[in-house]
């Protein structure tokens, strides 16, 4: 019986889809059978981030409406055969699917997969309700910005009201240089304000953009963000992984420049 995790944030553009792609791939690297569902009907993105956009024949709405079998719509990842994507429909809108249908779908998938990841659309309307309906657990993604945190707080409130069993926080796009200057909220501050369990901190990393351009998530790679996502995956599996020192690892060039600063 697999676990169903919804990745949500409230605010758009904080990295839900990137997080879903990286966590999904990371869990697959760790040997789990994973299926990712893009629930953002009308604005699908997860397929592009994963580089699978050219394989889509059927989508979530087709499955729900019985136009195809579930197996037909699942797209296997190029490198990890145990990683599947159920893409969303680009040409429909959110009310093409209702929460009961999502629950039925998720129940079917969890029979076979270890993890079902639901990439939630921004906002708190129908799409959010659909995504949250079948989930056991939520990853709330936020950035250290007032607007994102405020929305995250609202989401946490809604999830708690909906009796979500487990809610974890992912802080994305943290910039240590700005934190040091005092111009960005600290990790502790964000945790303090939202008061939910922190499962990972992902530093702002140019490599994310590069990875998205290439359609290849960077989890597990040598970049800081890639390591951070890998750690999140391990923590999802219940491993105790210490939070990494985001300042400690600097590029060669930065180290070189440091010599001159002193």
């Amino acid at each position: 019986m697999g676990e169903v995790i919804v990745i949500t944030s409230g605010k758009g553009g904080v990295g839900k889809t990137t997080t879903t792609a990286n966590v999904g791939m990371g869990l697959a690297m760790l040997g789990k059978k994973v299926v990712m569902i893009d629930t953002d009907i009308g604005l699908r993105n997860l397929d592009v981030v994963l580089g699978l956009e050219n394989r889509i024949v059927y989508n979530l709405v087709d499955v729900v409406e019985g136009k195809c079998r579930l197996k037909q719509a699942l797209i296997k990842h190029k490198k990890f055969p145990d990683l599947c994507l159920l893409p969303s429909a680009q040409t429909r809108d959110k009310d093409a699917v209702n929460p009961e249908q999502m629950v039925a779908l998720v129940e079917e998938l969890r029979e076979e997969y270890d993890y079902v990841l639901l990439d939630c659309p921004a906002g708190i309307e129908q799409g959010f309700k659909n995504a949250v309906a079948g989930a056991d657990r939520a990853l709330v993604v936020t950035t250290p910005e007032v607007s994102a945190i405020r929305d995250a707080d609202r989401i946490v409130g809604l999830l708690e009201a909906g009796e979500m069993k487990k809610i974890d926080l992912v802080i994305n796009r943290l910039r240590m240089d700005m934190v040091k200057r005092g111009d960005m909220l600290k990790v502790e501050d964000v945790c303090d304000i939202l008061s939910i369990h922190l499962i990972g901190v992902v530093p702002d990393d140019e490599q994310i953009v590069v990875a998205t351009n290439n359609g290849e998530p960077l989890v597990g790679g040598s970049s800081l963000a890639g390591q951070a996502y890998y750690n999140i995956c391990k923590r999802i599996l219940g491993e105790e992984v210490p939070f990494m020192d985001l300042e400690g690892k600097k590029g060669l060039m930065a180290k070189f420049l440091d010599l001159f600063k002193k």
Binding site: V63, V64, E65, G66, R69, E100, Q101, A104, L105
Partner: peptide
């Protein structure tokens, strides 16, 4: 019987 559950 197979697919009917989707149309609740």
């Amino acid at each position: 019987q197979e697919s009917g559950n989707f149309f609740k």
